[in-house]
């Protein structure tokens, strides 16, 4: 029984890299493609830690693999953030399920590292939760484009443009025909499930409308504060007089701080 990327990494068979330059990266990627192509099941692969660098800070993720014994659901990886260096985490837990393949998800131009033994080795392609968006609202998918690089046939994927930016989903196994992507929003009880279907890897074409999107029916009633939604307050406009609560539980109004300059920093820990 073959196991996937994570197990290989834990066993120390992951190729040692000294940098994430394109030459070595391609080798690692090819190995990953091979491992996935040969996999018929995913063992319990234990946990590893992945350090993600982006937006000027590094964040540790704990990476877990779980056992699934049959196709098409080969496995999934769950990322959960571990406290590291900065107060405001920017990525929340993400879960990705792929049909027929384990999908490696990444954002180009950002560095990822995997801890192997006492070494931090760069991982290419950089691995990061696909839905790394944060915010009070799950992003809307606007377009989906198929990506293919003829010079590097192992690199194929989906370019997903959302209301909050663009994410790239690379495919490892060309057999992938559909993918479900679930987003969970922070601060709002909203969950959206995207199902990508009907795209043809052989021709490299994808129907931009080839996905369905579901929003729970009870979204509005679950969200009593929906009417408070607003876009960013423009510079020069009056700040809303919101109610805040101190760690001593005391409530106070923002307007009670008039006369002082206030820096409001929005953050969350988990």
């Amino acid at each position: 029984m073959k196991t996937l990327l994570l197990a290989a990494a834990l066993a120390g068979s992951w190729p040692a890299l000294t940098d994430d330059g394109p030459g070595e990266a391609a080798e690692v990627y090819a190995e990953l493609v091979r491992a996935n192509a040969e996999a018929t099941a995913l063992d319990i692969v234990g946990t590893a830690t992945l350090r993600y660098e982006g937006q000027g800070q590094s964040i540790l993720f704990e990476l877990e693999g779980e056992s699934h014994v049959s196709k098409p659901l080969l496995g999934w990886m769950r990322y959960s953030r571990k406290a590291d260096s900065e107060p405001a985490p920017i990525y929340q837990a993400a879960e990705f399920i792929a049909d027929g393949s384990t999908v490696v998800v990444l954002e180009p131009d950002k560095k990822s590292y995997m801890e192997i033994g006492d070494q931090w080795l760069p991982v290419f392609p950089p691995v990061t939760p696909f839905f790394a968006w944060t915010g009070t609202r799950a992003p809307d998918v606007e377009t989906v484009a198929f990506l293919a690089d003829e010079a590097r046939p192992e690199r194929q994927g989906l370019l997903v443009t959302t209301s909050q930016g663009t994410e790239t989903l690379w495919l490892v196994d060309k057999k992938l025909v559909s993918a479900e992507i679930r987003t969970e929003s922070k601060g709002m009880r909203r969950e959206e499930l995207y199902t990508f279907t009907r795209w043809d890897i052989a021709s490299g074409k994808i129907d931009p409308q080839a996905y369905t999107r579901a929003i729970p029916d009870d979204y509005e009633e679950n969200n009593p504060n929906a009417h408070l939604e607003a876009d960013f307050i423009e510079v020069g406009a009056a700040a809303p007089n919101v109610t805040l609560q101190g760690m001593d539980d005391a409530l106070f109004q923002l307007d009670s701080l008039r006369g002082k300059t206030v820096l409001l920093n929005f953050w969350f820990y988990t």
Partner: peptide
Amino acid sequence: EGAVSRAFGVKAYPTNYVIGPDGKV
């Protein structure tokens, strides 16, 4: 319940607002 984040239109973290003594952004 996230009311303050929504009132300020916060969709990503971290978001920072500087509010002047007159209450304006």
